[in-house]
């Protein structure tokens, strides 16, 4: 119910909001999509993918290159999604030989590789000066609606992982990979599928980001902030839940907007203090803090916002208040 209201609000927003607010919402929706898809590998499967931003960067660059070569918008969108998924399946096979902190750092290494490649392959990517494409008419509105769709799709994908048999397989990998394998879960195939599935929407997000801003450079495509943002937002909200990444993203985006527009200096310090306090005081994220859990219980929601996203497989998707 709440989700319908929010969705209607998102579609009606352009009628009342100015262009600045629209672009804030656009970036918010992209961030939500990044966090929700990041949460598939990190929250459900327990593999901390610090290179999630690489899918975004690849999407943006591929879209830019396609448009510059007169490939057209639709081809660009399709190609960027395909490229991101192909990239995920290529790097996934070697990466999944690693676990824990090693996996996390190797994914970050891949992201850094992409960053250096993007700044050094000047003919393709424009080097450190970045890649620009000519702006198109009405792109703000089109990309805004696409970002709404993207956001909805990412939440739906995350919800599917929370409720499906496939997602349950990922949970068993997170809890104990050896036991999962011994009880017949095809861990290798499952992990690769999850990574590829989590790459598609970030690729699309990168493409519409490029479409809207008409500009990408190595830092905004593959930089550390692009990579860390979903990690922080997911942890803040509570990884491995459907609502957690959404709440975390919205919360942090609001914090950022307030800091950037109302405080003249030391914004990063305050941002850092927020991160430290959440890391120390709410290790499970906002959605698992006691206060929120109690509110949920009072409101009569089932307790699947706890440490496990959902174990009720038959009932299908719940009515999420997303």
């Amino acid at each position: 119910m709440i989700s319908f209201v929010l969705l209607a609000g998102a579609f009606a927003a352009p009628a009342i909001a100015n262009s600045y607010q629209i672009s804030v919402l656009f970036f918010l929706f992209i961030a939500v999509a990044m966090t929700e898809t990041y949460d598939i590998t990190a929250g459900y499967m327990g593999y901390l993918n610090l290179g999630h931003g690489a899918f975004f960067g690849i999407g943006a660059y591929i879209y830019g290159m396609t448009v510059l070569r007169d490939g057209g918008t639709v081809t660009g969108l399709i190609l960027s999604v395909v490229a991101a998924m192909a990239f995920a399946s290529v790097v996934g096979y070697p990466l999944f030989r690693l676990r824990g902190a090693y996996f996390a750092i190797a994914t970050f290494g891949i992201l850094k590789l992409m960053e250096v490649l993007a700044s050094n392959l000047r003919d393709l990517t424009g080097g450190t000066t970045g890649l620009s494409i000519p702006p198109t008419d009405g792109s703000t509105m089109i990309t805004y609606y696409l970002s709404v769709l993207l956001c909805v799709a990412s939440v739906a994908l995350n919800a599917w992982f929370a409720t499906s048999r496939f997602g349950l397989g990922l949970l068993t990998i997170r809890e104990d990979e050896e036991v999962a394998e011994a009880s017949g879960v095809q861990t290798g195939r499952l992990k690769l599928c999850a990574l590829v599935a989590s790459a598609a929407l970030p690729g699309f997000a990168g493409a519409i980001y490029m479409w809207q801003t008409t500009y990408i450079d190595p830092d905004s495509g593959f930089g550390s902030s692009v990579a860390f943002a979903p990690v922080i937002m997911a942890v803040l909200g509570g990884g491995g839940t459907i609502v957690g990444p959404l709440v975390g993203t919205v919360f942090l985006t609001i914090v950022q907007e307030v800091l950037w527009s109302h405080v003249g200096y030391l914004q990063l310090t305050m941002y850092g203090v927020v991160l430290i306090s959440v890391g120390i005081m709410m290790p499970g994220g906002l959605m698992r803090s006691r206060l929120i859990s109690r509110l949920y219980a009072l409101a009569g929601f089932p307790d699947h916002y706890g440490y496990y996203p959902s174990r009720q497989l038959k009932s299908g998707a719940h009515s999420e208040n997303t």
Partner: peptide
């Protein structure tokens, strides 16, 4: 521990760098 240490120490790093 991995996730919270990434988060907390990243926060510390941002605070130090910005200050």
């Amino acid at each position: 521990m991995l996730i919270t240490s990434v988060m907390t120490t990243l926060g510390v790093a941002l605070v130090i760098e910005d200050l």
